[in-house]
């Protein structure tokens, strides 16, 4: 096949992978929350309620799209797209599998690697901020202000934890980071060195917590906390424009989990299941399967945390981000630099 066809196929697969994850996640969220809360969960639509996401989508599609009076029409329509699209772009550099023949199972093998996904993921804040501002609603405004302050503060710690993985592996190319982890061990466990073990563990945990904050999930969902701000930044949104926010959040979760998997959990490789030298279609499928399994373990944790913990207060969130996570992440990075020099020298 020509390179263009390959690229189109991979983009198509990644799109289906991300958008297809949304119904699965809706179902997961409903089922797991029902399990935690001692409820039945959806069990009426389709066998064991499996068609519930479809029913949700039909409901969204048939609702009226309302633009509030005195809202900024253009920004109001545009901002759900700004939330929906950037996470998808971020998936471009995530290697979701091994090679098939000579073709890497990654959409774009960029030189800047993980930094690209970092930069596009941070674009999502514009959608939330503008959406809340354009709604002409005080709750939305408060929610979007909270969201922007939160996303910016936690992006720092998130960036530092990404940098830690980059320092351990010595490269920003995600494919090579995965390769390094195959040779040495998961970055979560310090990449095979006992010296780096505490740093790797700390970095991985911190990255997951910051990912919760980045994705506006409980306990960091101040931007939309329904008890205070009704719906937060999406109070005024209805119909598919609300669904876009909704899907954007889930897709961002999948992409973030993909990034954590790639940077800390050994990517698509699991010893004994995948063989890095196996470039046949069986090997490719197996590696995609392992990647998916790791991503969904993380997503399960997302859901689990959400239905267990209460949420933070605004000032506590800021304190945690700036006074706890940032120093820890900086310390981690400095310690990693020293350990790196000792190990090298």
């Amino acid at each position: 096949m020509t390179p263009w066809l390959w690229l189109a196929a991979k983009i198509g697969f990644a799109f289906a992978y991300l958008v297809g994850a949304v119904p699965v996640l809706i179902m997961m969220e409903r089922r797991i929350s029902a399990f935690i809360q001692g409820r039945q969960g959806p069990n009426r639509v389709g066998p064991m309620g499996s068609l519930q996401p479809l029913a949700d989508i039909i409901k969204f599609l048939t609702k009226e799209f309302v633009v509030p009076l005195r809202a900024d029409r253009w920004l109001f329509v545009l901002s759900p797209l700004l939330v929906f699209v950037p996470p998808m772009l971020g998936f471009a550099v995530v290697p979701f599998g091994n090679q098939y023949g000579d073709e890497l199972l990654q959409i774009a093998n960029l030189d800047i690697g993980v930094l690209f996904s970092m930069s596009v993921l941070s674009l999502g804040v514009y959608g939330i901020t503008l959406g809340g501002w354009a709604s002409n609603n005080k709750y939305s405004l408060l929610g979007s202000l909270r969201a922007s302050a939160q996303l910016i503060s936690y992006e720092l710690s998130l960036g530092l934890t990404i940098l830690l993985a980059v320092m351990i592996a010595g490269t920003v190319d995600p494919v090579r980071i995965v390769q390094w982890q195959i040779e040495h061990g998961w970055n979560l466990f310090g990449g095979g060195s006992l010296w780096r073990l505490p740093l790797g563990l700390m970095g991985g945990l911190l990255m997951f917590i910051c990912a919760l904050a980045e994705n506006n999930r409980l306990p960091f969902d101040l931007a939309e906390c329904e008890a205070e701000l009704v719906g937060g930044y999406h109070t005024e949104y209805s119909s598919m424009s609300f669904a876009m926010f909704f899907m954007g959040e889930y897709i961002a979760m999948v992409v973030m989990s993909g990034l954590i998997t790639t940077l800390y959990l050994g990517g698509w490789h699991f010893p004994g299941i995948t063989d890095p030298t196996d470039h046949s279609w069986v090997g490719a499928l197996l590696s995609i399967g392992v990647f998916t399994a790791k991503v969904y373990v993380l997503l399960f944790t997302y859901v689990w945390v959400r239905w267990t913990l209460p949420r933070f207060k605004y000032n506590q969130l800021m304190d945690l981000g700036w006074k706890v996570f940032l120093p820890i992440a900086l310390f981690n990075l400095a310690a990693m630099a020293i350990v790196g020099v000792i190990l090298e020298g």
Binding site: S33, I36, Q37, G38, R39, L218, P219, D221, C225, A227, W307, T308, L309, P310, R311
Partner: peptide, 15 residues
Amino acid sequence: AMDLGAFSVMLWSFI
């Protein structure tokens, strides 16, 4: 607990 975000506790109490 629900108003502070811990939704599950509320549903347990409702049972």
